[in-house]
């Protein structure tokens, strides 16, 4: 009888190990992931635009190690220079629900890799692909679009708000305005 109780407990405990599964050695041969995303529903011809999401994003979004690595790279690579701690500065805010170029992780990866008009530089070949995915996962965690268990806890530095883990679950609204501060001077 007791065995039936213990076994699920052990299974649950072991399942929790997945939360921080650490993959140090990204395979460089698959370095550039081949996600395809569409920013608008328009395309040439009768069929809609083709999209391809490999599911790689889930691996990054639901893994606490990847997200906290992303958090580290976010300051190392000076993302906070323009986006501040997610509240935005000369770049748009990242912790809100508005996503000019889409808020799915694949969209954010593409934004980092390719760059966007009005200031976002392209980091292709400057940041290794797995690190781009990690940063994107962290950016997703700012609006808490990742599971609570995987989102980062309190930072060591001063923080403008509650830790990502304590924020209410967010939603993603595609579209949105380029803020006046990020627009080119007319």
């Amino acid at each position: 009888m007791k065995v039936y109780l213990v076994l699920p407990l052990v299974a649950f405990a072991l399942a929790a190990c997945e939360r921080e599964d650490r993959e140090y050695r990204a395979n460089p041969m698959t370095a550039e992931s081949q996600e395809k995303i569409a920013l608008v529903p328009l395309s040439a011809g009768p069929s809609g635009p083709t999209e391809y999401r490999s599911g790689l994003g889930k691996e990054y979004e639901e893994n606490a190690f990847h997200i906290s690595q992303g958090q580290r790279f976010y300051t190392w690579f000076n993302c906070n220079g323009c986006h501040a701690n997610g509240g935005g500065g000369s770049g748009p805010a990242l912790m809100d629900d508005r996503w000019i170029y889409g808020g799915q992780i694949e969209n954010i990866v593409q934004t980092i890799r390719e760059g966007r008009p009005n200031g976002m530089p392209s980091f292709r070949r400057k940041i290794p692909d797995d690190q781009i995915w990690e940063i994107a996962a962290y950016v997703r965690s700012m609006g808490r679009n990742v599971p609570k268990a995987a989102a980062p806890g309190r930072k060591d530095d001063m923080s403008p708000g509650p830790a990502e883990q304590r924020r209410p679950p967010g939603q993603v609204i595609d579209g949105g305005q380029v803020p006046p501060s990020a627009q080119m001077p007319q």
């Binding site: 650490r22 050695r25 990204a26 460089p28 370095a31 550039e32 290794p128 692909d129």
Partner: peptide, 17 residues
């Protein structure tokens, strides 16, 4: 070429070369 083979977990990433 392989920082993690030498020092697993180090912050030096494997890069495309």
């Amino acid at each position: 070429v392989d920082p993690h083979g030498v020092k697993p977990g180090v912050n030096m990433p494997t890069i495309q070369l």
